[in-house]
Nucleic acid binder design. Structure first.
Length: 587
RNA sequence: GGAGAUGUGGUGUAGCGGCCUAACAUGUCGCCCUGUCACGGCGAAGACCGCGGGUUCGAAUCCCGUCAUUUCCGCCA
């Protein structure tokens, strides 16, 4: 061992002990006659004093060449700091180590950016190119620690409840129903391919047929889709599946896990739960109130409906079936230019236009056609909006209610971000339940599974499933936090006949269905238990707990928006020999 | 596939038509310094402003293109 203690460990009680420390030079302060070094390892900082009174002349001479990020081993005696010299900002601030021996284990070039600077002020491309240096910074060390705590907590929590962790293969079967996949050519089977799993969905259901009953896995998933701040080509989910349970059992389990984690590790992330228990709303209500299936519910600004009050309005835009709006508090000072910009935004989000009302001391005012609004309408609007002087009211009118909801939902979301309405230290969890089973593909007009084709419709819709697919609600559930989808799952279909009916509605011929999912259909015939599951996203949860702006901050080696790793040079061309062996040819 | 933002010494920024022979902070290097902890003092080096083209008497600054990074839309069963 190079060290007897970590750099975060020594206290005044260690005074007089001879210790060995090893780590990196965080900062050095060379006073000519005496040199102070803040020695850093993952556990903290300890001040090392290199003084000729304690150190040999040759060691002192050599110590003058020490620079930041050199790797050192220090042997010395722990001493209480002189009277009035302790540093309360550091855990080890009461002591210092008087070096008797200084060993330079490895010198270091000057880093391209500062390690002792914890701010978010270095270009991310630079940080990723030198990720091994970035990881030394406190922010990354802290984020990875939070991630580790979360995963450890998940494992322990589920283990205590009888779950079995099972690994499923990474070399899997292509299932082109879902996201675009990463393909791996087979050397042994010319012209055939493995696919990396988008999720272990089918395998975990087969584990249920296999009698595992309670399964989980910290599962890596792969999707070859374009990146976002909360999306990486490979990401990690807490994949879970249970047999002989219903929806509420799963919700209670996950809610319990996350609630307890937040409470046990509050000191770690400084964030608190806003809702205990979590909010729970049906999908249609979420859309009516927030206009978005993953709303940030840390703030209100809910959609209101004035369709009844505007019926028969003289104001042309209001002569439609639905008039809904949001009230933006304190924004009556917005200029015409600003509201025009909001109108543009609303149009991009699908609205035909945006009616803007300024609620000021004299009442409700509107530029242009404002006079067409009757006093009764204005009163009804301010009542529904709950607005007061100083607020801005935004209204969207549309015969298509969904379109009005969506546009307002986008506006609400955008304004929530711009106005910083969500408090960063709060976590607002919301369960969204009772999703539609099927949605119509806007291009083909065909029915598509809202979640995936293994999701069970609620029992009361089974009789009319084929007659009216659009009316069916499913046993799907999503968990939303601060505007992010952090988990999704469902109770699954466990009977072959129901599964085949759903496949038929989705337009799969029985031949196709059997070719793609025959293993599932077969398995369901051998006593598949009722089962369901969920998959909380580990990266997104860690991001929220760490207060990070994107999931790259909680992933040690993330890829950039081009799905590349600039440090490693990934992806890279393959040798001709390899390509040949795989029986593929480049275009 | 589309839209926006950004790109200036090692790093982070300022400058946004002539005052730029490019400023500031920090880092780096040299000298000095035995109680600092974002140590301090003195001095020095370091960028032709992502790249290419254009407009102009004159471009870091305006325009076009391109590349890179990023955010969002599409996409993400």
């Amino acid at each position: 061992m190079f060290k007897t203690h970590t750099c975060g460990e020594l206290r005044h009680t260690h005074a007089g002990h001879t210790v060995q420390l090893a780590g990196w030079v965080h900062r050095r302060r060379d006073h000519g006659g005496v040199i102070f070094i803040d020695l850093r390892d993952r556990f903290g900082l300890t001040q090392v004093v290199i003084n000729p009174t304690h150190t040999s002349a040759s060691d002192f001479k050599r110590s003058e060449s020490i620079r930041n990020e050199f790797v050192l081993q220090i042997e010395g005696e722990v001493a209480l700091r002189p009277e009035g010299m302790s540093n309360t900002k550091v855990a080890t601030g009461a002591i210092e180590v008087m070096a008797s021996k200084v060993t330079i284990l490895n010198p270091a070039k000057t880093p391209p950016f500062m390690i002792d600077d914890d701010g978010d002020n270095v270009d991310e491309a630079m940080r990723l190119r030198y990720r091994y240096l970035d990881l030394r910074r406190e922010r990354m060390s802290r984020n990875l620690n939070i991630r580790h705590r979360l995963i450890k907590f998940m494992r322990d929590y589920l283990d205590q409840r009888g779950f079995l962790e099972v690994e499923t293969p990474i070399l899997f079967k292509s299932t082109p129903e879902g996201a675009r996949e990463y393909l791996v050519p087979s050397r042994v089977h010319p012209g055939e391919f493995y696919a990396l799993p988008q999720s272990p969905q089918q395998l975990k259901q087969l584990l249920m047929v296999g009698g595992i009953e309670r399964y989980f896995q910290i599962a890596r998933c792969f999707r070859d889709e374009d990146q976002r701040a909360d999306r990486q080509p490979e990401f990690t989910q807490l994949d879970m599946e249970m047999s002989f349970i219903d929806r509420d059992d799963i919700l209670a389990l996950v809610e319990g896990l996350l609630t307890q984690f937040c409470e046990d590790f509050a000191e770690l992330h400084g964030r608190s739960l806003m809702f205990k228990p979590f909010l729970r709303l049906p999908f249609h209500e979420v859309m009516e109130r927030y206009g978005r299936d993953k709303p940030d519910v840390r703030y209100g600004m809910e959609l209101f409906d004035v369709s009844a009050a505007t019926r028969g309005s003289e104001f042309l835009p209001f002569q439609v079936a639905n008039v809904k709006g949001i009230c933006v508090q304190g924004c009556a000072g917005y200029t015409r230019k600003q509201t025009d910009e909001l109108t543009e935004f609303a149009k991009k989000a699908g609205a035909k236009g945006l009616v803007v009302l300024w609620h000021d001391a004299d009442g409700v005012r509107k530029s242009g056609a404002g006079t067409k609004l009757s006093d009764a309408e204005k009163t009804a609007i301010t009542a529904a909006a709950g607005s007061k002087a100083g607020d801005l009211i935004l209204l969207v009118a549309d015969d298509d209610r969904e379109r009005a909801n969506n546009a307002l939902g986008e506006l609400r979301h955008e304004l929530g971000i711009r106005l910083k309405l969500g408090k960063p230290d709060q976590l607002a969890f919301l369960w969204v339940v009772d999703f539609p089973s099927f949605v119509r593909d806007s291009e083909t007009g065909h029915w598509a599974a809202n979640h995936h084709l293994f999701t069970a419709p609620k029992d009361e819709y089974l009789d009319n499933l084929e007659a009216d697919p659009g009316a069916a609600r499913s046993k799907q559930y999503d968990l939303v936090c601060n505007g992010y989808e952090v988990a999704g799952g469902s109770i699954r279909i466990h009977r072959r006949d129901v599964q085949e009916r759903v496949m038929k509605i989705l337009g799969l011929s029985m031949e196709e269905a059997y070719k793609k999912f025959g293993h599932m259909l077969d398995a369901f015939e051998y006593g598949a238990p009722p089962h369901g599951g969920i998959a909380p996203g580990v990266d997104r949860l860690a991001m929220l707990f760490a207060g990070a702006p994107n999931i790259r901050e909680v992933i040690a080696f993330p890829k950039n928006q081009q799905a590349a790793d600039v440090m490693l040079g990934v992806p890279s061309p393959a040798a001709e020999k390899q390509i040949k062996e795989l029986h593929i040819r480049l275009a």
